[in-house]
Design a protein around this nucleic acid. Structure first.
Lengths: 217, 217
DNA sequence: GTCTATACTGTGATAGAC
DNA sequence: GTCTATCACAGTATAGAC
Protein backbone atom coordinates (compact mmCIF):
# COMPACT_ATOMS: atom_id res chain seq x y z
CA UNK A 1 0.00 0.00 0.00
CA UNK A 2 1.27 3.40 -0.91
CA UNK A 3 1.59 5.90 1.84
CA UNK A 4 -1.12 8.49 1.71
CA UNK A 5 -2.24 11.36 3.86
CA UNK A 6 -5.00 10.88 6.38
CA UNK A 7 -7.23 13.18 4.37
CA UNK A 8 -6.85 11.11 1.25
CA UNK A 9 -7.56 7.97 3.24
CA UNK A 10 -10.71 9.50 4.66
CA UNK A 11 -11.85 10.46 1.21
CA UNK A 12 -11.16 6.92 0.05
CA UNK A 13 -13.19 5.45 2.89
CA UNK A 14 -16.13 7.78 2.39
CA UNK A 15 -16.32 6.84 -1.27
CA UNK A 16 -16.04 3.16 -0.43
CA UNK A 17 -18.79 3.51 2.16
CA UNK A 18 -21.04 5.13 -0.41
CA UNK A 19 -20.47 2.30 -2.85
CA UNK A 20 -21.29 -0.30 -0.22
CA UNK A 21 -24.42 1.58 0.83
CA UNK A 22 -25.63 1.85 -2.72
CA UNK A 23 -24.96 -1.81 -3.34
CA UNK A 24 -26.05 -3.38 -0.05
CA UNK A 25 -27.96 -0.76 1.90
CA UNK A 26 -27.05 1.36 4.90
CA UNK A 27 -27.88 -1.33 7.44
CA UNK A 28 -25.34 -3.70 5.93
CA UNK A 29 -22.63 -1.09 5.71
CA UNK A 30 -20.32 -2.22 8.48
CA UNK A 31 -16.87 -0.90 9.16
CA UNK A 32 -15.46 -4.16 7.89
CA UNK A 33 -17.42 -3.99 4.66
CA UNK A 34 -16.18 -0.46 4.10
CA UNK A 35 -12.49 -1.16 4.58
CA UNK A 36 -12.79 -4.30 2.50
CA UNK A 37 -14.37 -2.29 -0.31
CA UNK A 38 -11.58 0.24 -0.06
CA UNK A 39 -8.98 -2.49 -0.07
CA UNK A 40 -7.64 -1.45 3.31
CA UNK A 41 -7.08 -3.33 6.53
CA UNK A 42 -9.61 -2.93 9.31
CA UNK A 43 -7.21 -0.91 11.40
CA UNK A 44 -7.18 1.83 8.82
CA UNK A 45 -10.72 2.69 9.75
CA UNK A 46 -10.10 3.85 13.27
CA UNK A 47 -6.98 5.54 12.25
CA UNK A 48 -9.02 7.84 10.02
CA UNK A 49 -12.28 8.14 11.97
CA UNK A 50 -12.92 8.26 15.65
CA UNK A 51 -16.05 6.17 15.22
CA UNK A 52 -18.49 4.82 12.70
CA UNK A 53 -20.75 7.74 13.50
CA UNK A 54 -18.06 10.13 12.34
CA UNK A 55 -17.84 8.30 9.02
CA UNK A 56 -21.61 8.44 8.60
CA UNK A 57 -21.49 12.13 9.25
CA UNK A 58 -19.05 12.60 6.37
CA UNK A 59 -21.05 10.32 4.10
CA UNK A 60 -24.24 12.28 4.66
CA UNK A 61 -22.54 15.53 3.82
CA UNK A 62 -21.03 14.02 0.72
CA UNK A 63 -24.22 12.52 -0.65
CA UNK A 64 -26.15 15.70 0.08
CA UNK A 65 -23.86 17.72 -2.14
CA UNK A 66 -23.87 15.06 -4.81
CA UNK A 67 -27.68 14.93 -5.09
CA UNK A 68 -27.93 18.67 -5.29
CA UNK A 69 -25.31 19.22 -7.98
CA UNK A 70 -27.24 17.81 -10.97
CA UNK A 71 -30.34 19.74 -10.00
CA UNK A 72 -28.58 23.07 -10.09
CA UNK A 73 -27.10 22.26 -13.47
CA UNK A 74 -30.50 22.35 -15.16
CA UNK A 75 -30.70 26.09 -14.89
CA UNK A 76 -28.68 26.63 -18.01
CA UNK A 77 -29.78 26.89 -21.59
CA UNK A 78 -33.44 27.72 -21.08
CA UNK A 79 -34.20 29.99 -23.97
CA UNK A 80 -37.54 31.67 -24.27
CA UNK A 81 -39.77 28.79 -23.37
CA UNK A 82 -43.24 29.09 -21.97
CA UNK A 83 -43.86 28.98 -18.25
CA UNK A 84 -45.39 25.59 -18.66
CA UNK A 85 -42.45 24.23 -20.64
CA UNK A 86 -39.94 25.44 -18.12
CA UNK A 87 -41.82 23.93 -15.22
CA UNK A 88 -42.28 20.58 -16.91
CA UNK A 89 -38.73 20.57 -18.19
CA UNK A 90 -37.25 21.20 -14.77
CA UNK A 91 -39.31 18.54 -13.06
CA UNK A 92 -38.63 15.96 -15.73
CA UNK A 93 -34.92 16.68 -15.53
CA UNK A 94 -34.98 15.90 -11.85
CA UNK A 95 -37.04 12.82 -12.42
CA UNK A 96 -34.69 11.41 -15.05
CA UNK A 97 -31.96 11.72 -12.51
CA UNK A 98 -33.97 9.66 -10.01
CA UNK A 99 -34.66 6.98 -12.56
CA UNK A 100 -31.04 6.78 -13.54
CA UNK A 101 -29.71 6.26 -10.04
CA UNK A 102 -32.48 4.77 -7.92
CA UNK A 103 -30.16 3.07 -5.45
CA UNK A 104 -28.47 6.34 -4.67
CA UNK A 105 -31.75 7.99 -3.81
CA UNK A 106 -32.77 5.07 -1.70
CA UNK A 107 -29.60 5.49 0.31
CA UNK A 108 -30.54 9.09 0.92
CA UNK A 109 -33.73 8.06 2.69
CA UNK A 110 -32.05 5.25 4.56
CA UNK A 111 -29.38 7.62 5.80
CA UNK A 112 -31.91 10.15 6.97
CA UNK A 113 -33.76 7.56 9.02
CA UNK A 114 -30.58 6.10 10.37
CA UNK A 115 -29.46 9.56 11.41
CA UNK A 116 -32.78 10.42 13.04
CA UNK A 117 -32.41 7.44 15.36
CA UNK A 118 -28.82 8.22 16.25
CA UNK A 119 -28.66 10.94 18.93
CA UNK A 120 -25.39 12.34 17.64
CA UNK A 121 -26.61 12.48 14.05
CA UNK A 122 -30.17 13.73 14.30
CA UNK A 123 -29.07 17.30 13.81
CA UNK A 124 -27.13 16.40 10.70
CA UNK A 125 -30.30 14.95 9.21
CA UNK A 126 -32.15 18.15 9.96
CA UNK A 127 -29.47 20.30 8.40
CA UNK A 128 -29.40 18.02 5.38
CA UNK A 129 -33.08 18.48 4.83
CA UNK A 130 -32.86 22.18 5.54
CA UNK A 131 -30.27 22.40 2.80
CA UNK A 132 -32.49 20.57 0.32
CA UNK A 133 -35.26 22.97 1.19
CA UNK A 134 -33.14 26.00 0.46
CA UNK A 135 -31.98 24.58 -2.83
CA UNK A 136 -35.51 23.82 -3.87
CA UNK A 137 -36.67 27.27 -2.89
CA UNK A 138 -33.90 28.89 -4.91
CA UNK A 139 -34.88 26.68 -7.75
CA UNK A 140 -38.49 27.81 -7.68
CA UNK A 141 -37.31 31.38 -7.53
CA UNK A 142 -35.02 30.86 -10.50
CA UNK A 143 -37.76 29.28 -12.56
CA UNK A 144 -40.04 32.19 -11.92
CA UNK A 145 -37.33 34.66 -12.80
CA UNK A 146 -36.46 32.86 -16.00
CA UNK A 147 -40.01 32.73 -17.21
CA UNK A 148 -40.83 36.16 -15.93
CA UNK A 149 -43.66 35.37 -13.59
CA UNK A 150 -44.34 35.20 -9.89
CA UNK A 151 -45.79 32.64 -7.52
CA UNK A 152 -49.21 33.38 -6.08
CA UNK A 153 -48.35 31.35 -2.98
CA UNK A 154 -45.75 32.25 -0.33
CA UNK A 155 -42.45 30.78 -1.44
CA UNK A 156 -41.55 28.95 1.82
CA UNK A 157 -44.82 27.03 1.82
CA UNK A 158 -44.56 26.32 -1.89
CA UNK A 159 -41.00 25.07 -1.49
CA UNK A 160 -41.84 22.79 1.37
CA UNK A 161 -44.82 21.47 -0.45
CA UNK A 162 -42.80 20.84 -3.60
CA UNK A 163 -39.96 19.16 -1.77
CA UNK A 164 -42.45 16.90 -0.03
CA UNK A 165 -44.09 16.04 -3.32
CA UNK A 166 -40.79 15.10 -4.91
CA UNK A 167 -39.79 13.10 -1.84
CA UNK A 168 -43.08 11.26 -1.83
CA UNK A 169 -43.07 10.55 -5.53
CA UNK A 170 -39.51 9.30 -5.36
CA UNK A 171 -40.16 7.12 -2.35
CA UNK A 172 -43.21 5.56 -3.91
CA UNK A 173 -41.55 4.95 -7.21
CA UNK A 174 -38.65 3.30 -5.43
CA UNK A 175 -41.18 0.87 -4.05
CA UNK A 176 -43.25 -0.07 -7.05
CA UNK A 177 -41.16 1.25 -9.98
CA UNK A 178 -44.33 2.13 -11.84
CA UNK A 179 -43.02 4.58 -14.42
CA UNK A 180 -46.37 5.33 -15.96
CA UNK A 181 -48.17 6.20 -12.76
CA UNK A 182 -45.19 8.07 -11.40
CA UNK A 183 -45.01 10.19 -14.49
CA UNK A 184 -48.72 10.91 -14.34
CA UNK A 185 -48.42 12.00 -10.73
CA UNK A 186 -45.39 14.13 -11.52
CA UNK A 187 -47.31 15.87 -14.27
CA UNK A 188 -50.14 16.40 -11.86
CA UNK A 189 -47.72 18.34 -9.69
CA UNK A 190 -46.40 20.27 -12.67
CA UNK A 191 -49.96 21.15 -13.52
CA UNK A 192 -50.48 22.43 -10.02
CA UNK A 193 -47.39 24.58 -10.27
CA UNK A 194 -48.64 26.22 -13.44
CA UNK A 195 -51.84 26.91 -11.54
CA UNK A 196 -50.02 28.98 -8.93
CA UNK A 197 -47.83 30.76 -11.45
CA UNK A 198 -49.08 34.19 -12.35
CA UNK A 199 -47.61 36.40 -15.05
CA UNK A 200 -45.65 39.12 -13.38
CA UNK A 201 -45.38 42.07 -15.71
CA UNK A 202 -48.10 42.36 -18.33
CA UNK A 203 -46.26 45.29 -19.88
CA UNK A 204 -43.05 43.44 -20.72
CA UNK A 205 -41.48 45.10 -23.74
CA UNK A 206 -40.61 41.71 -25.23
CA UNK A 207 -36.96 42.29 -24.45
CA UNK A 208 -34.91 40.20 -22.07
CA UNK A 209 -35.99 41.48 -18.71
CA UNK A 210 -34.97 38.17 -17.20
CA UNK A 211 -32.67 39.23 -14.47
CA UNK A 212 -35.15 41.67 -13.11
CA UNK A 213 -36.14 40.26 -9.77
CA UNK A 214 -39.72 41.27 -9.17
CA UNK A 215 -40.25 42.90 -5.83
CA UNK A 216 -42.20 40.76 -3.46
CA UNK A 217 -44.98 42.32 -1.43
CA UNK B 1 -46.07 -18.32 32.79
CA UNK B 2 -49.51 -19.34 31.78
CA UNK B 3 -49.85 -21.80 28.99
CA UNK B 4 -51.02 -20.18 25.81
CA UNK B 5 -51.66 -21.28 22.29
CA UNK B 6 -49.06 -20.67 19.61
CA UNK B 7 -51.36 -18.14 17.99
CA UNK B 8 -51.68 -16.16 21.17
CA UNK B 9 -47.93 -16.26 21.61
CA UNK B 10 -47.41 -14.99 18.11
CA UNK B 11 -49.83 -12.17 18.71
CA UNK B 12 -48.00 -11.33 21.89
CA UNK B 13 -44.66 -11.21 20.11
CA UNK B 14 -45.92 -9.10 17.23
CA UNK B 15 -47.30 -6.55 19.64
CA UNK B 16 -44.10 -6.55 21.63
CA UNK B 17 -42.07 -6.09 18.46
CA UNK B 18 -44.17 -3.10 17.53
CA UNK B 19 -43.65 -1.51 20.91
CA UNK B 20 -39.90 -1.97 20.66
CA UNK B 21 -39.83 -0.57 17.13
CA UNK B 22 -41.81 2.47 18.14
CA UNK B 23 -39.59 3.05 21.11
CA UNK B 24 -36.15 2.20 19.73
CA UNK B 25 -36.45 1.96 15.96
CA UNK B 26 -36.55 -0.98 13.58
CA UNK B 27 -32.78 -1.37 13.43
CA UNK B 28 -32.57 -1.91 17.18
CA UNK B 29 -35.44 -4.37 17.26
CA UNK B 30 -33.57 -7.60 17.87
CA UNK B 31 -35.11 -10.94 18.70
CA UNK B 32 -33.76 -10.58 22.21
CA UNK B 33 -35.34 -7.18 22.64
CA UNK B 34 -38.67 -8.52 21.44
CA UNK B 35 -38.86 -11.52 23.74
CA UNK B 36 -37.66 -9.42 26.62
CA UNK B 37 -40.40 -6.89 25.94
CA UNK B 38 -42.94 -9.70 25.80
CA UNK B 39 -41.61 -11.20 29.01
CA UNK B 40 -40.81 -14.47 27.32
CA UNK B 41 -37.64 -16.54 27.12
CA UNK B 42 -35.55 -16.25 24.01
CA UNK B 43 -36.38 -19.78 22.97
CA UNK B 44 -40.03 -18.85 22.68
CA UNK B 45 -39.20 -16.85 19.62
CA UNK B 46 -38.26 -19.70 17.38
CA UNK B 47 -41.07 -21.76 18.67
CA UNK B 48 -43.48 -19.21 17.20
CA UNK B 49 -41.61 -17.96 14.14
CA UNK B 50 -39.31 -19.73 11.76
CA UNK B 51 -37.10 -16.66 11.56
CA UNK B 52 -36.92 -12.97 12.28
CA UNK B 53 -38.04 -12.32 8.74
CA UNK B 54 -41.29 -14.13 9.40
CA UNK B 55 -41.92 -11.92 12.42
CA UNK B 56 -41.23 -8.81 10.38
CA UNK B 57 -43.70 -10.01 7.82
CA UNK B 58 -46.41 -10.23 10.46
CA UNK B 59 -45.46 -6.88 11.92
CA UNK B 60 -45.74 -5.15 8.56
CA UNK B 61 -49.18 -6.56 7.98
CA UNK B 62 -50.25 -5.54 11.44
CA UNK B 63 -49.06 -1.96 11.24
CA UNK B 64 -50.53 -1.55 7.77
CA UNK B 65 -54.01 -2.34 9.03
CA UNK B 66 -53.52 -0.19 12.08
CA UNK B 67 -52.56 2.93 10.12
CA UNK B 68 -55.46 2.54 7.78
CA UNK B 69 -58.16 2.07 10.38
CA UNK B 70 -58.32 5.63 11.71
CA UNK B 71 -58.38 7.06 8.21
CA UNK B 72 -61.44 5.11 7.19
CA UNK B 73 -63.21 6.17 10.34
CA UNK B 74 -63.37 9.77 9.27
CA UNK B 75 -66.00 9.05 6.67
CA UNK B 76 -68.81 9.28 9.18
CA UNK B 77 -70.78 12.25 10.33
CA UNK B 78 -70.11 14.56 7.40
CA UNK B 79 -73.33 16.44 7.05
CA UNK B 80 -73.89 18.90 4.27
CA UNK B 81 -70.55 20.64 4.29
CA UNK B 82 -69.01 22.40 1.35
CA UNK B 83 -66.56 20.63 -0.93
CA UNK B 84 -63.81 22.71 0.49
CA UNK B 85 -64.73 21.95 4.07
CA UNK B 86 -64.86 18.23 3.45
CA UNK B 87 -61.48 18.18 1.75
CA UNK B 88 -59.78 20.25 4.42
CA UNK B 89 -61.50 18.31 7.19
CA UNK B 90 -60.38 14.96 5.86
CA UNK B 91 -56.78 16.01 5.38
CA UNK B 92 -56.55 17.64 8.78
CA UNK B 93 -58.01 14.54 10.40
CA UNK B 94 -55.24 12.47 8.88
CA UNK B 95 -52.68 15.01 9.88
CA UNK B 96 -53.78 15.10 13.50
CA UNK B 97 -53.26 11.39 13.56
CA UNK B 98 -49.69 11.80 12.32
CA UNK B 99 -48.94 14.42 14.92
CA UNK B 100 -50.37 12.30 17.68
CA UNK B 101 -48.28 9.23 16.92
CA UNK B 102 -45.15 10.33 15.10
CA UNK B 103 -43.04 7.37 16.18
CA UNK B 104 -45.55 4.96 14.73
CA UNK B 105 -45.39 6.63 11.35
CA UNK B 106 -41.64 6.70 11.44
CA UNK B 107 -41.66 2.95 11.97
CA UNK B 108 -43.78 2.58 8.87
CA UNK B 109 -41.10 4.15 6.71
CA UNK B 110 -38.32 2.28 8.43
CA UNK B 111 -40.13 -1.00 7.88
CA UNK B 112 -40.69 -0.29 4.22
CA UNK B 113 -37.01 0.37 3.66
CA UNK B 114 -35.98 -2.60 5.68
CA UNK B 115 -38.32 -4.77 3.64
CA UNK B 116 -37.10 -3.40 0.32
CA UNK B 117 -33.58 -4.51 1.14
CA UNK B 118 -34.63 -7.98 2.28
CA UNK B 119 -35.19 -10.25 -0.74
CA UNK B 120 -37.91 -12.25 0.99
CA UNK B 121 -39.77 -9.14 2.10
CA UNK B 122 -39.61 -6.81 -0.88
CA UNK B 123 -42.93 -8.05 -2.17
CA UNK B 124 -44.59 -7.45 1.16
CA UNK B 125 -43.49 -3.84 0.98
CA UNK B 126 -45.00 -3.50 -2.45
CA UNK B 127 -48.27 -5.03 -1.39
CA UNK B 128 -48.34 -2.79 1.67
CA UNK B 129 -48.01 0.28 -0.47
CA UNK B 130 -50.48 -1.05 -3.01
CA UNK B 131 -52.94 -1.39 -0.17
CA UNK B 132 -52.39 2.18 0.97
CA UNK B 133 -52.95 3.29 -2.58
CA UNK B 134 -56.28 1.52 -2.82
CA UNK B 135 -57.44 2.91 0.48
CA UNK B 136 -56.51 6.42 -0.57
CA UNK B 137 -58.26 6.02 -3.90
CA UNK B 138 -61.43 4.81 -2.18
CA UNK B 139 -61.12 7.74 0.12
CA UNK B 140 -60.97 10.24 -2.70
CA UNK B 141 -63.92 8.56 -4.29
CA UNK B 142 -65.89 8.71 -1.06
CA UNK B 143 -65.14 12.37 -0.58
CA UNK B 144 -66.38 13.18 -4.04
CA UNK B 145 -69.52 11.14 -3.53
CA UNK B 146 -70.26 12.78 -0.20
CA UNK B 147 -69.90 16.27 -1.52
CA UNK B 148 -71.53 15.46 -4.81
CA UNK B 149 -68.77 16.39 -7.20
CA UNK B 150 -66.30 14.70 -9.50
CA UNK B 151 -62.56 14.83 -10.03
CA UNK B 152 -61.35 16.39 -13.24
CA UNK B 153 -58.23 14.23 -13.13
CA UNK B 154 -58.10 10.43 -13.58
CA UNK B 155 -58.52 8.87 -10.17
CA UNK B 156 -55.45 6.55 -10.25
CA UNK B 157 -53.09 9.42 -10.96
CA UNK B 158 -54.79 11.63 -8.41
CA UNK B 159 -54.57 8.92 -5.78
CA UNK B 160 -50.92 8.24 -6.39
CA UNK B 161 -50.17 11.91 -6.34
CA UNK B 162 -52.08 12.40 -3.12
CA UNK B 163 -50.50 9.45 -1.40
CA UNK B 164 -47.08 10.72 -2.37
CA UNK B 165 -47.90 14.15 -1.06
CA UNK B 166 -49.00 12.80 2.29
CA UNK B 167 -45.96 10.55 2.47
CA UNK B 168 -43.64 13.41 1.68
CA UNK B 169 -45.25 15.82 4.09
CA UNK B 170 -45.18 13.23 6.85
CA UNK B 171 -41.57 12.32 6.22
CA UNK B 172 -40.46 15.92 6.22
CA UNK B 173 -42.38 16.79 9.32
CA UNK B 174 -40.87 13.80 11.08
CA UNK B 175 -37.50 15.35 10.35
CA UNK B 176 -37.97 18.96 11.30
CA UNK B 177 -41.26 18.91 13.28
CA UNK B 178 -42.15 22.30 11.87
CA UNK B 179 -45.89 22.42 12.51
CA UNK B 180 -46.45 25.78 10.90
CA UNK B 181 -44.75 25.01 7.61
CA UNK B 182 -46.20 21.53 7.48
CA UNK B 183 -49.67 22.88 7.95
CA UNK B 184 -49.15 25.48 5.24
CA UNK B 185 -47.95 22.83 2.82
CA UNK B 186 -50.87 20.57 3.72
CA UNK B 187 -53.27 23.39 2.99
CA UNK B 188 -51.50 23.96 -0.27
CA UNK B 189 -52.38 20.41 -1.21
CA UNK B 190 -55.96 20.84 -0.04
CA UNK B 191 -56.15 23.90 -2.20
CA UNK B 192 -54.95 21.93 -5.16
CA UNK B 193 -57.58 19.28 -4.54
CA UNK B 194 -60.35 21.85 -4.57
CA UNK B 195 -58.91 22.99 -7.88
CA UNK B 196 -59.47 19.62 -9.48
CA UNK B 197 -62.89 19.13 -7.92
CA UNK B 198 -65.73 20.06 -10.22
CA UNK B 199 -69.39 20.09 -9.30
CA UNK B 200 -71.34 17.33 -10.94
CA UNK B 201 -74.85 17.75 -12.31
CA UNK B 202 -76.86 18.27 -9.11
CA UNK B 203 -79.78 16.11 -10.19
CA UNK B 204 -77.81 12.90 -10.73
CA UNK B 205 -78.74 10.36 -8.00
CA UNK B 206 -75.60 8.29 -8.45
CA UNK B 207 -74.48 8.69 -11.97
CA UNK B 208 -71.16 7.34 -13.15
CA UNK B 209 -70.02 10.47 -14.88
CA UNK B 210 -66.67 10.33 -13.14
CA UNK B 211 -64.30 10.70 -15.99
CA UNK B 212 -66.26 13.52 -17.43
CA UNK B 213 -64.03 16.54 -17.27
CA UNK B 214 -66.10 19.66 -16.99
CA UNK B 215 -64.57 22.85 -18.27
CA UNK B 216 -62.67 24.69 -15.63
CA UNK B 217 -63.78 28.19 -14.65
C1' DG C 1 3.14 10.52 11.03
C1' DT C 2 1.20 6.36 8.49
C1' DC C 3 -0.30 2.04 8.69
C1' DT C 4 -1.48 -3.05 10.19
C1' DA C 5 -2.27 -7.40 12.91
C1' DT C 6 -4.60 -9.10 16.36
C1' DA C 7 -7.29 -9.19 20.47
C1' DC C 8 -11.30 -7.75 23.15
C1' DT C 9 -16.17 -7.30 24.27
C1' DG C 10 -20.83 -7.28 23.16
C1' DT C 11 -24.71 -8.85 20.53
C1' DG C 12 -26.87 -11.04 16.67
C1' DA C 13 -29.65 -15.35 15.11
C1' DT C 14 -30.24 -20.06 15.52
C1' DA C 15 -30.19 -24.90 17.20
C1' DG C 16 -29.87 -28.60 20.09
C1' DA C 17 -30.03 -30.36 24.90
C1' DC C 18 -33.00 -30.59 28.74
C1' DG D 1 -42.01 -25.69 26.21
C1' DT D 2 -37.74 -23.79 28.11
C1' DC D 3 -32.83 -22.90 28.73
C1' DT D 4 -28.27 -22.74 27.38
C1' DA D 5 -24.61 -23.41 23.94
C1' DT D 6 -22.95 -21.97 19.74
C1' DC D 7 -21.00 -19.48 16.28
C1' DA D 8 -20.64 -15.43 13.34
C1' DC D 9 -19.94 -10.83 13.23
C1' DA D 10 -20.44 -6.22 14.96
C1' DG D 11 -17.58 -2.01 16.72
C1' DT D 12 -13.68 -0.82 19.13
C1' DA D 13 -8.89 -0.82 21.33
C1' DT D 14 -3.97 -1.31 21.24
C1' DA D 15 0.77 -2.54 20.39
C1' DG D 16 3.87 -1.94 17.45
C1' DA D 17 5.88 -2.22 12.30
C1' DC D 18 7.18 0.82 8.63
Amino acid sequence: MTRRSADERREQLVEAALRVMIRDGVARTTTRAVVSEAGLPLGAFHYCFRSKEELLHSVIERITLRSVAPATATRADEGDLSTREIIFGTLHAYWDQVRERPAEHMVTYELTQYALRQPGLADVARRQYQHYLEVYRDHLEAIARLAGFGWTVPLPALARYGLSVMDGLTLNWLIDRDDVQARAALDEYAEHLTTVAAPRTPKTPDGDARDRAPTAP
